[in-house]
Amino acid sequence: MKKTFDLSGRRAVITGGSRGIGAAIAETFVAHGAQVAICHFGDEANARSLVERLSSQGTPIHAMSCDVSDPHAVKDFARWTASVLGDVDIVVNSAGVGGGDRPFDKTDDDDWDRIVGINLRGTMLVTRAFFGGMLVRRYGRVINIASQLAYKGAPGLAHYCAAKAGVVGFTRALAYEGAPHGVMVNAIAPGPVDTELLRSHSEEWLTMKRSQLPIGRFGVVDEIAPTALLLASAAGAFYAGQTLSPNGGDVML
């Protein structure tokens, strides 16, 4: 079973990898033998801390700042990744940003473009930077981080829900193109997870949300990372176009 989840020799890119779910996935991948490069956006302190901590375990990881919504920045990131890792086997699109709680009629163009630009356009841009090479080598894993709100929706989050629903649709469509060439594209749609994004809500909102969950609590990042390990490893070889939902019962599909 250990060999099934072994990532030795695999090279992985994780966006939004300096904290939260992305950092937990980076740590899990390193623990299972992968070489890892992460990107972040203006989060130097957390990125440096993660690199130092994980590199001290014997497998150096690499970090670079990158705005995933900027195509030029993504191209620079891809070139840098090639120099530090070589060919990339696994891409995890974890970079994302929340939208706050803003009614749709108070959402301006800049709000919409920022949320969709990072959560959906960024996922597309980063995937595109590595997908062609995976097709040529006839091996790859793309794992997109969506959200249970792609299915459920939420007031005040039309832009975020639309972006994450787009990630799910993008995942399904791209899986048709990748699977015949050994490139498996899947997504993870977490429920409420104890991260900075969740803690930005009011205590009243958190209490209300917690009461809605059948499991009675919020998740932690270490409960999401194993799903990424499954999809990245040999154990996930039969998954294509799927969205797995560790969400504490918030959405039951």
Results as ranks from 00 to 15, higher is better:
94 S>H: 03
96 G>N: 12
97 V>G: 12
98 G>C: 10
98 G>E: 05
100 G>C: 10
103 P>T: 06
105 D>G: 07
107 T>Q: 13
107 T>W: 15
108 D>I: 12
111 D>M: 04
112 W>R: 04
114 R>D: 12
115 I>S: 05
116 V>I: 09
116 V>T: 12
120 L>I: 13
120 L>R: 15
121 R>S: 09
123 T>V: 12
123 T>P: 11
124 M>S: 14
124 M>F: 15
125 L>Q: 04
129 A>Q: 07
129 A>K: 11
131 F>H: 02
131 F>D: 01
132 G>Q: 13
132 G>S: 10
133 G>D: 02
134 M>N: 07
136 V>K: 13
136 V>T: 15
137 R>V: 12
138 R>L: 06
140 G>K: 00
142 V>S: 02
142 V>H: 01
143 I>S: 13
145 I>C: 08
147 S>T: 07
148 Q>F: 13
149 L>N: 07
151 Y>Q: 14
151 Y>N: 09
152 K>H: 13
153 G>A: 04
154 A>G: 07
156 G>N: 08
156 G>T: 07
157 L>R: 15
157 L>A: 15
159 H>W: 14
161 C>N: 04
162 A>G: 06
163 A>Q: 06
163 A>T: 03
164 K>P: 00
164 K>V: 04
165 A>S: 07
165 A>Y: 04
168 V>Y: 04
169 G>W: 15
170 F>Y: 09
172 R>C: 04
173 A>W: 15
173 A>K: 15
174 L>A: 09
180 P>T: 09
181 H>P: 03
182 G>S: 07
182 G>Q: 01
184 M>W: 14
185 V>H: 02
185 V>E: 10
187 A>S: 13
188 I>A: 13
189 A>N: 02
191 G>T: 07
191 G>Q: 08
192 P>A: 13
192 P>C: 14
193 V>P: 00
195 T>P: 01
200 S>I: 01
202 S>T: 06
204 E>D: 03
204 E>P: 01
205 W>N: 01
208 M>Y: 12
210 R>L: 05
210 R>A: 05
211 S>I: 13
211 S>K: 06
212 Q>D: 01
212 Q>W: 05
216 G>D: 03
217 R>N: 09
221 V>G: 00
222 D>K: 09
223 E>A: 11
223 E>R: 15
223 E>M: 10
224 I>D: 01
224 I>M: 04
